[in-house]
């Protein structure tokens, strides 16, 4: 059995104007400061690729909300892609799945 990851991996690609942030591993209360540090300041257009995220808790969700709200204030855009089942469950339980800017394939 594969041991679930215990850390968060952050990889950034793209330009200053259009950036994509690829996350893998856990986005929990312990990892949120690292994630927010990497994602901010926001680029005019940011894609958050959650393809490798195996677990997200309410702190991780709150961090996504924080980014989306500050993007609105700055007239920037944030888009979330590749939401996996575990993260989708957390979003659905909290009612955020419908409220967050999630692009489905």
């Amino acid at each position: 059995m594969n041991r679930p990851p215990v850390d968060l991996n952050i990889e950034q690609r793209g330009t200053d104007a259009a950036r994509s942030i690829h996350l893998s591993g856990r986005l929990d209360a312990h990892q949120v400061p690292a994630f927010l540090g990497a994602a901010q300041p926001l680029a005019p257009h940011t894609t958050l690729d959650l393809a490798g995220v195996t677990f997200m808790d309410s702190s991780g969700l709150a961090a996504l909300v924080k980014l989306v709200r500050s993007a609105r204030e700055q007239a920037a855009s944030v888009e979330i892609v590749n939401v996996q089942d575990a993260v989708r469950l957390a979003m659905e339980i909290t009612g955020l799945y419908a409220a967050l800017p999630i692009r489905t394939a």
């Binding site: 969700l61 909300v65 909290t94 009612g95 955020l96 409220a99």
Partner: peptide, 19 residues
């Protein structure tokens, strides 16, 4: 708190209550 709101706190309790 209400579900589905875009706010930065209070999701944890919601998760526990739902599960």
């Amino acid at each position: 708190r209400e579900a589905g709101e875009l706010r930065e706190h209070g999701y944890g309790l919601l998760i526990v209550r739902r599960c």
